[in-house]
């Protein structure tokens, strides 16, 4: 394509966007609102999933060893590629942790409490155990089942219901996020293609003349696509400029007041998110224009 042609197409696209000022403004604000909702939903979904994953990641499998079992041998048998880490806990430590966990601090320190407990009961009620941390929390049920079959294992425990629920929730959020995202994307596309159709209608004489003097359909499309891209670019930038400060404020507020909630926050991730939002606007703008033109160019 010649430089002159590129210049002509860019000029026509820009000129059309400026000339149809009100329609352009409508298109930009429609894109901005749609991307604002889409961006907000994506951020919300990402955070819920992030929190569910954090909880699920904290989950471990506790393998209680049978009396006299060889801890090293059992540990050896439990290792596989899906295991991230195995922490051996001897009986004394296990008792101390149990006391701490249950708040049974009878003495000043948990060691002293443990000693008192052993003295009272005549033996340590807690067996030695191994704590397995999986690579992926989804593998917990499967790893637990495998551990049950290993020789020297007395009992296998994990927070079955909590882990299962969290995992199901994370999966649910991911799927509903994708569904809502697709619905919003389609809505955005329709909004842009309808808006572009308005500008096409306003310029139907120009299109007719272009066709009569021998312009190819691609040549006719390009200025409209440029116009759609400009609308999408502006709409995406506005959406990013609104959603990011609001999110930063929420993150700060939550960080200070609701410390049990851990929101995703990294400058790099947010910049990437803003770029993705603008790119979404550009892609939707171009695709919406092509959709709007497709029907029209067949009609003329």
């Amino acid at each position: 394509m010649r430089l002159n042609t590129i210049e002509f197409l860019l000029h026509e696209g820009w000129d059309a966007a400026v000339r149809n000022g009100l329609v352009t403004l409508a298109a930009i604000s429609n894109v901005a609102v749609a991307l604002l909702i889409l961006g907000g939903l994506v951020l919300f979904g990402m955070n819920v999933e992030h929190m569910a994953s954090l909880q699920a990641e904290a989950a471990v499998i506790v393998v209680e060893l049978a009396e006299g079992a060889d801890a090293a041998a059992v540990e050896e048998a439990l290792w596989n590629e899906r295991v991230k880490n195995i922490e051996p806990i001897n009986a004394e430590e296990n008792l101390q942790r149990t006391i701490e966990g249950m708040g049974l601090g009878l003495m000043e320190s948990s060691e002293a409490s443990a000693e008192l407990m052993i003295e009272l009961l005549g033996a340590n009620p807690c067996p030695a155990s191994l704590q397995i941390k999986p690579m992926d929390p989804q593998d917990i049920p499967e790893l637990a089942r495998q551990a049950e079959g290993v020789e020297g294992v007395a009992m296998v425990r994990y927070a079955r219901q909590v882990t299962d629920k969290l995992l199901t929730m994370a999966r649910g959020i991911r799927i509903s996020g994708v569904v809502v995202g697709i619905v919003m994307a389609v809505a955005t596309l329709l909004v842009i293609s309808t808006t572009i159709r308005l500008t096409i209608h306003a310029r139907r004489d120009e299109i007719r003349i272009m066709q009569l003097v021998g312009a190819t359909n691609w040549f006719i499309r390009v200025p409209f696509v440029i116009e759609g891209v400009l609308d999408g670019l502006a709409g995406g930038a506005i959406a990013a400029a609104i959603v990011l400060p609001i999110y930063s404020y929420i993150e700060q507020y939550v960080g200070q007041n609701l410390q049990f909630i851990d929101l995703i926050y990294s400058a790099q991730a947010l910049v990437l998110f803003a770029v993705a939002l603008v790119l979404c606007g550009v892609v939707f703008g171009a695709a919406g224009s092509l959709m709007g033109l497709h029907r029209y160019l067949r009609q003329v």
Binding site: M1, R2, N4, T5, F8, R19, D205, E206, R208, I209, M210, L212, V213, G214, A215, F219
Partner: peptide, 23 residues
């Protein structure tokens, strides 16, 4: 079928623009 926002020169040149003629 002239484009009202273009000058006479541009209206005639438009037919050359759309076929990719050089400047």
């Amino acid at each position: 079928g002239l484009l009202p926002q273009k000058t006479v020169w541009e209206n005639v040149g438009f037919a050359l623009d759309v076929v990719g003629a050089s400047r």
